[in-house]
Design a protein around this nucleic acid. Structure first.
Lengths: 146, 146
DNA sequence: TTCAGTTGTATAGTAAGCTATTTAATGTTA
DNA sequence: TAACATTAAATAGCTTACTATACAACTGAA
């Protein structure tokens, strides 16, 4: 049997990511949030007035993806945007009060979710998993070509 | 700092899955394959004549996702489908010769990809990572509700 | 044997990701 | 300062995922 899917790290990671996404989605959807929006909110809760390109670097998606995500967030009343007076290319992103109020409940939901998913692992295994994921990502991103 | 993204397993897994996907995509795109299609091909290379619902169970995506993936595969000449003579609801999926010829090169590319991604880890760490991912998935799927 | 339920596929509509291209504003340099 | 280059954001078009819904074909029970 070549490449049995359940032994391939690529398959496993993809599968787990979908499970994580679906579970988080289920928890935050009632609050009017979604997985695409969530990491953007995490950064904006810490500090808003950021530009699209700031968020692109922070979140690690492509510029076009962020442009669409921000458009949806604006449509849904999570953010407003205004032109920077000093540089007409920039549109700074501000949270609405409505979005600010979601901070507590949403991060709590995400933390509960993470805890629950890892509930089958011992504390040692949890930190091992996180460390191995980080290390793999570092290796990957260090390999500039391909 | 609440939920620093680089310590959240959900974030890490999602990030790594995107890196994996992009890297595999880059390798198999020249062969006319893509990430959505790849797991389907893995099963069809082993045995074709399967139905859409067989593939849904094997691959673990929703039925509608599989319907679209198969439609693209048919469009791109990777598969043909015919009605089952004994049950008119079933459309059995068969690989084209063209698709069969991709078996060797494609699985080799995927294996190289997996090896490369894990190249920063020791052998022990590699099996640890795979085991932890499997265990987490098992925990997750065992929690039927939410 | 007909009618109700189940099963297999397809379709509509949305989200979130990607690449490639375009447009507007700002910078730089000959 | 006019021309060219760079940067920020938007847009077009594609893939892969999802939920919800529709419809056709088969199955089983009254």
């Amino acid at each position: 049997m070549n490449l049995p899917p359940d032994a391939s790290p690529g398959y496993l990671v993809n599968h787990l990511a979908r499970l994580f996404g679906a579970a988080l989605q289920a928890r935050i959807k009632p609050m009017g949030l979604s997985i695409g929006v969530f990491p953007v909110m995490l950064h904006l809760w810490q500090k808003d007035g950021l530009t699209q390109s700031d968020l692109v670097s922070l979140v690690g998606v492509e510029q076009a993806t962020m442009a669409n995500t921000l458009a949806r967030m604006e449509r849904d009343g999570l953010i407003v945007r205004d032109k920077d007076p000093d540089d007409g290319r920039l549109r700074r992103v501000w949270l609405t009060d409505h979005a600010r109020r979601k901070h507590g409940p949403a991060t709590q939901a995400a933390e509960e979710q993470n805890a629950r998913v890892l509930s089958g692992l011992s504390d040692a295994e949890k930190s091992q998993l996180i460390e191995l994921l980080r290390k793999t990502i570092r290796t990957f991103e260090g390999q500039s070509d391909t």
